[in-house]
């Protein structure tokens, strides 16, 4: 299997990439920290990957996306799976008073993903197969006071993926929207962890399963589907008063 991993040094992506390394996949990694990419590439090789190449870039630089994806294509020849994992958890307060900051966050979490999907879709359409899987978030399911710039960016991506799924159906390209709940990763380092938290490793197993099974939208772990259905069902009159 030939896999393009974007935001490869994220804790979740790292855990996913290790599962594919065990399956002897060929991997192409994109992330912005070269030193950590090198470490990951060696790690994946020891764990069984057939080949590992990487490309260093800041994913907010959308103008370089075409080039990065084409590098991946030349290294892998064929892309069977592209998994987009990068993201950033912004400080909501700052984003509310500083639009530049908000725009940057929307770019990283939202626009950059759409730009990457645009480039990858072109290749997969041509090849008439493959999967694009994107990590969005349960935060996109409803705009909460504490987190709505992040949530809005993620829901933009989810909505985009719904449309893209239909558009690429005739080309046999599969689209997966992955919505994790709370994951104990560097992104959430400062937060107190409770029972609803999952490890990146357990999330990764569920992601790989969902890709194998060609699911459309998955909540990981599954119980988040119920939690979010409940959150979505709260009447707006009440919800607007909720500070969580």
């Amino acid at each position: 299997m030939n896999i393009l991993l974007i935001g490869a040094t994220s804790a979740i992506a790292k855990a996913v990439s290790r599962l594919y390394a065990e399956r002897n996949a060929r991997l192409f990694l994109i992330a912005r920290n070269e030193a950590r990419l090198k470490v990951l590439a060696d790690d994946l090789t020891v764990r069984g990957a057939q080949s590992v190449d990487f490309h260093v870039m800041d994913l907010a630089d959308t103008e370089n996306h075409a080039n990065a994806v084409s590098n991946a294509k030349s290294a892998l020849e064929n892309i069977d799976l592209a998994l987009i994992c990068h993201g950033s958890l912004p400080d909501q307060e700052t984003c509310e008073s500083d639009f530049e900051q908000a725009a940057q966050e929307i770019k990283v979490n939202g626009l950059s993903v759409i730009s990457l999907c645009t480039e990858i879709s072109k290749l997969l359409k041509e090849k008439k197969s493959g999967t694009i899987a994107v990590i969005t978030s349960v935060a996109g399911d409803r705009g909460r006071q504490s987190n709505f710039i992040y949530g809005a960016s993620k829901s933009m991506v989810s909505t985009y993926l719904q449309g893209l799924r239909g558009k690429l159906l005739p080309h046999d390209v599969h689209i997966l929207d992955i919505r994790p709940g709370l994951v104990d990763s560097p992104m959430t380092a400062g937060l107190e962890k409770g029972v609803l938290w999952s490890s990146p490793e357990s999330i990764a197993t569920k992601i790989v399963n969902s890709i194998d099974k060609k699911k459309h939208t998955v909540y990981v772990p599954g119980y988040w589907r119920i939690i979010m259905a409940t959150v979505r069902s709260i009447p707006e009159v009440l919800f607007k008063r909720m500070k969580f």
Binding site: A11, V39, L40, D42, D43, V46, R47, P186
Partner: peptide
């Protein structure tokens, strides 16, 4: 927890670095 990477496996002299 995050020092969890392998660096090298050498199957000639049976060593692993991690």
């Amino acid at each position: 927890r995050f020092l969890d990477s392998f660096l090298e496996i050498n199957s000639t002299n049976d060593t692993i670095r991690c």
